[in-house]
Design a protein around this nucleic acid. Structure first.
Lengths: 195, 195
DNA sequence: TAATATAATTAACAATGTTAATTTTACCAA
DNA sequence: TTGGTAAAATTAACATTGTTAATTATATTA
């Protein structure tokens, strides 16, 4: 019964793709069972044959978005010189990605998801995302004795917290009120951490 | 027609009190027109005689919570020595307040509110809250030449962003997974900013 | 006390997530 | 090719949201 699995996975893909399009376009507020099913070309109840509930479906998108974001960052920071400079570039591109897709920021950081503790792996994936993006460069800095392990842990943590805070204020509270100001502020705060 | 105004303000108070109780107790998820009206002792439609919509009502609570939080912080940090040490104490107490009432954190930072731009004053109140709590101490530090104005602005901003980020991860993503770890992390990051 | 204005309530609507009942489709043996 | 059965998809239905309209109850005033 291999066909069965292929078809089932394909169906899941249709709903996941529809959800991703909506999230990237209209954001979380446009996500509804009927909206997703419409876009996927099926009735709303069909969705429940492939996903436990709508949260289950929405969080299936996390990995795909992380992969996309990772690719984007790698292409944008390919020629940065290794070490702290590259961490700075990665962080800035990371911020730009979420500014481009506020709906993905909402999904990653705002959407509440501890109803089911089975989502723990997804939560972990989100929490460690920036660390994973930078891990090569942190290891490089440590090997080159540019930083101690303990310092690197503190700075990793500061970057994670600061990027989330920056995006929260900019995307959710319109502060600062222009993209240029946001970028200036972000660069200043990121440099303050990494220097 | 002064009685009219008194009565109207009293009615608004009933609904606001009910909303505040729900927010402090069950959090934002428990907020609904019918839930609030039940607790206030009126029918759900009566609410619309006193508030444009439910968001209008919910954001009426912001000022009250800020006042409460301000009192709490003042009583908890009264005997801290002035300057950076007091800013540190204020920030820690500020974090503790929101940990105690996650629903208030949701209201202040997570709830989306730029449908109507008339809420701009509320947004400003939220964005500048921590700055206002610390403004006396920052001014003290500047007057005593302990810090430059520019440094103080950068650090204010860092505190604002970092506290929101810390709370976002702890309250919304269970990271770190214990209160003690959260406090340790928060203290370390706040000190890193203020040192 | 009767007429009118005001306030409060119930009814109703549209949109949400979810489950049950029903219809349609796919498959396989005769 | 045709029936019968299993699977999948759809419609119906329900409970819960926010909000508005229609209706009832209450106050005020002449």
């Amino acid at each position: 019964m291999k066909n069965k699995e292929i078809q089932e996975e394909r169906m899941r893909g249709y709903f996941i793709d529809a959800t991703k399009e909506l999230l990237k376009g209209e954001g979380l507020k446009s996500i509804s069972v009927r909206n997703i099913a419409d876009r996927a070309g099926y009735s709303y109840a069909t969705l429940y044959n492939y996903f436990k509930d709508i949260k289950d479906l929405v969080f299936e998108c996390v990995k795909d978005f992380q992969d996309e974001c990772t690719d984007y960052i790698q292409s944008e920071t390919a020629q940065s010189s290794r070490g702290i400079a590259k961490i700075e570039a990665i962080t800035e591109t990371y911020l730009k990605y979420f500014v481009q897709y506020p709906g993905i920021f909402e999904l990653f950081f705002l959407e509440c998801l501890f109803d089911l503790s089975e989502k723990q792996t997804t939560v972990e994936m989100i929490n460690s995302f920036l660390d994973r993006l930078c891990s090569n460069e942190w290891n490089y800095c440590i090997q080159e004795n540019l930083i101690t392990i303990e310092e690197s842990e503190t700075k990793k943590s500061a970057l994670q917290i600061t990027t989330a805070g920056l995006l929260l204020f900019y995307l959710n509270r319109r502060h600062p009120d222009s993209y240029m100001e946001f970028l200036t502020l972000a660069r200043k705060q990121v440099r303050r951490i990494l220097m």
